[in-house]
């Protein structure tokens, strides 16, 4: 009987952790590649409407963002509750748009400039007045490729 008794204190064989760093590094690289560091703090409400006919914006460097929405609570005192335009990380007015576009355009190599898209990130509750004004300014600045940012409608 004693023959089959387990020996007390015999530890289970240890799992080798030598490859752990490799696994972690793999994960690390994955996240490093997919990471997009958030460049601008969003200061306006951004509750995107739903749509079905969506196109992905592939190349981030060829996209500039114009955000429109009601200012967040902490900016109410300063900017009111009416929808505002946010360019980069600042509140702006419609007349600032051409300069903003030009600044972005100068960072893009010349041969890729026709592919520049403007992503209009507009809150669903905003009325069309301000959106129309922005669109007209974009047309006047020759920026005709526009992407109305939207979420995929859940089926």
């Amino acid at each position: 009987m004693g023959k089959f008794q387990k020996k007390r204190g015999s530890s289970t064989p240890e799992v080798s952790t030598a490859s752990l760093p490799d696994i972690i590094f793999m994960l690390l690289f994955f996240f490093m590649v997919v990471t997009v560091l958030r460049d601008a703090e969003v200061k306006v409400a951004q509750n995107m409407p739903y749509a079905t006919e969506l196109t992905k914006l592939e190349r981030k460097s060829l996209v500039n963002y114009i955000k429109i929405g009601k200012p967040m609570k902490q900016y109410h005192a300063q900017y009111g509750t009416k929808p505002q335009i946010q360019l980069g990380d600042k509140f702006a007015s419609i007349s600032d748009i051409p300069l903003f576009l030009e600044k972005h355009r100068s960072t893009v190599p010349e041969n890729q400039r026709p592919g520049i898209n403007t992503s209009l990130k507009v809150d669903g509750d905003v009325t069309m007045g301000i959106v129309t004004d922005v669109k007209q300014k974009l047309r006047k600045s020759g920026q005709l490729k526009v992407n109305y940012s939207a979420k995929k409608r859940p089926d």
């Binding site: 996240f31 490093m32 749509a51 196109t55 992905k56 996209v63 047309r139 005709l144 992407n147 940012s149």
Partner: peptide, 22 residues
């Protein structure tokens, strides 16, 4: 790894593409 995990936002920008008239 934890740093990148925290800062990562995997959001692809999608939307309805339109071409405005000149």
């Amino acid at each position: 790894l934890i740093f990148f995990l925290v800062t990562t936002t995997i959001d692809v920008d999608k939307g309805v593409l339109v071409k405005l008239p000149p």
